[in-house]
């Protein structure tokens, strides 16, 4: 708590994130979706629903890739023999 109070926003990095930094993938993808849908969609009806759909889909794909790489590194690679 005291570390958070000593934090200077925009000047100091947000170190309080710790090991949860990867969760920032969600706002990053949301920002990309907001811009992508703004320039790509023919009209702005149902804009936020499409932004949400793209955010969920992109995060699901990225999360699946991360899971596949995790499984490969921790379970498949140890099975490989060096000889």
């Amino acid at each position: 708590m005291s570390a958070l109070l000593a934090w200077l926003p925009f000047l100091q990095p947000m170190t309080a994130l710790g090991n949860a930094w990867w969760l920032l993938m969600v706002p990053l993808v949301f920002g990309v979706a907001v811009v992508h849908r703004a320039v790509q969609d023919p009209n702005m009806d149902g804009y936020w629903a499409r932004v949400l759909r793209l955010t969920v889909k992109a995060n699901a794909v990225l999360g699946s890739l991360a899971l596949a790489i995790y499984l490969f590194v921790y379970f498949v690679i140890p099975l490989l023999r060096a000889d």
Partner: peptide, 26 residues
């Protein structure tokens, strides 16, 4: 206008989030 303001929100939101998370050093 609507398209422009949404794109503006997205780009500035991403940039300011980056500076908020990483500080101006990024």
């Amino acid at each position: 206008r609507q398209r422009g303001f949404r794109a503006m929100g997205g780009v500035l939101g991403l940039f300011l989030s980056g500076v908020l998370v990483g500080g101006v050093d990024c």
